[in-house]
Amino acid sequence: MQSLSVRRIVIMAIGSMLLSGCASSPTGNIEAFGSAATEVSTSIDSVISDYNQAVINNRLVAMAQSKRPYVAADFDDIKQIIIRDANKQELSLYQANKALGDYAKALVALARAGSREEIAISTSSLSKALLMMDSQHQLLLQKDSALTKDGAARIARVIAQLSSGYIESKKAKALKAIIIAADPAVQKIGLVINNQLLKGVIESRLYTMRGSELAGYFADYNAKSSSRSFVQKKQKLDEIYLKYVQMEATSASVKQAQSALLAVMKSHHLLKSELEKDNYSGTGVIEALKKIKANHTAFDSLETLIKNCGTEIIASDEQGIICKP
């Protein structure tokens, strides 16, 4: 009985020593980063899909604005666009975003691997096993119990903590090495995605294409203007105004994706710097993670864009109503 108690103390001492070494588990922050980055990558993916849809809509707009009669063969042109854009893998934006999204998902999966809960479940049965062994020991040798229920549970807990401490330390080392090595690639890819969006390929095309659609509504309005009453004209203008607001807000969803992406790049870099110092849960990292979340939720409409703009709302020729960068 004495030897068991001594062994128990030794095991618990080793356990607490190991646990104190990994008190600030890296998994929480890295998992949070990975999840946020995955969401950002998904929102960039939906910008790509919106853009592809807008290109098709633009052709339909051009057809509707023409006085030509149409037949099914006139859709061949659109078919070609569908075929071209269906192959998203060709888009550098898609490839870069996919690499970023897959990386973020892999970080989450690694941070979650061998969770404490999993190990705790498997080792909780050990306490039952120890108690059972003890009862057999009592029965056969007619001796007093060497182990209390509480003692058995404590031993199992220590085994669980030792096991998860070992796994945590393996994960911490791996995540540190991976994040440090991947940071230059994350920064480069983020910059390209951001620049391609910023450069105005998607944003300015979306704005221009929506403008072409709006012109069609004005043409209709103008053609019937003289025969309409004030009430009819006002109703039509209200309808057109709604379309106009939608067009002006075009940049909101793209801007939201851009801001969130920039926050991901920044927090990855911060995470890398903190990990280099073996600091897994610095306040800087936590703040950066909060910023990704904030950027991800803001700017989903013109109203929220105006409400959340920290600088100044300005009208841009290329992007519509925007928050001054």
């Binding site: 690499a99 897959d102 990386y103 892999a106 970080l107 690694l110 691997a113 991976i178 991947a182």
Partner: peptide
Amino acid sequence: AIDQLIQATENANEIR
């Protein structure tokens, strides 16, 4: 950069 990130992703998956 894409290749480098794909490699980092594979490493993370292998360690997991």
